[in-house]
Write a protein that binds this DNA or RNA. Structure first.
Lengths: 110, 110
DNA sequence: ACACTTATTCTATTTTATAGAACAAGTATT
DNA sequence: AATACTTGTTCTATAAAATAGAATAAGTGT
């Protein structure tokens, strides 16, 4: 059972969403678009590297393939382990919010 | 905008769910029932106190009211600020998972 | 060579998570 | 009244994650 943090969850999901375009800076933009929050450079790379080290992501060096300005990028992709972690997270998240409608209503969350 | 961690999210929700029975040890059991994971003592009190300090929870001392064995308990309740934080978290969580069905299917998450 | 562009590495600090021993505050018992 | 018993909280220490951004790297264009 690999419990992941919310940051890790969102990064894994953005990698899935971006597919072939899952590069660190694109992920950063996607997160910004989604949450309205601009993560710092470290706020992206640090967890991406950690997820890779843990085996939830894998990464590929684009050095030779690309023809564009600037330093070559690294492309991320989710692994089967990463997918399992997402599934589990989603289930817990759903269970968490499985509260009686009365309670939700009372809080204005219904 | 008060972004909360997943631990904070689950604690806030369990406080809502438990209502009048939102005591630290009951919360701990509820979290265990929900996630299958037994949090340590500190794993419950530390974030509960932090949430209280931040104003997302308030707490009430049950010293005089209760007639039961053992030390008096403290009861927690969510504040309007706590509710707002939950709303926001839920929205982000929903936005996060708002991915094209194709992608979800491909990952076996559809 | 040198400037320019883009991306990543690296380091430091703050905040959270995690764990559990020690302690506190009651009730029951003798 | 003293002592055991029961339950809950406080406190302290360590590991992990979040946060920030300067420094550096690795290409392309001139």
């Amino acid at each position: 059972m690999t419990t992941i943090s919310r940051t890790e969850e969102i990064l894994l999901l953005m990698v899935c969403k971006l597919g072939d375009e899952a590069f660190a800076m694109q992920i950063r933009e996607e997160v910004k678009a989604l949450t309205g929050k601009l993560y710092s450079i470290g706020g992206i790379y640090v967890p991406l590297d950690r997820l890779t080290a843990k085996g939830l992501l894998k990464m590929e060096d684009m050095a030779s393939d690309e023809e564009r300005m600037g330093r070559p990028r690294r492309r991320f992709a989710i692994t089967s382990q990463g997918i399992m972690a997402l599934k589990e997270t989603r289930e817990i998240e759903q269970a968490m919010w499985d509260i009686s409608p009365d309670v939700l209503q009372k809080m204005g969350l219904g």
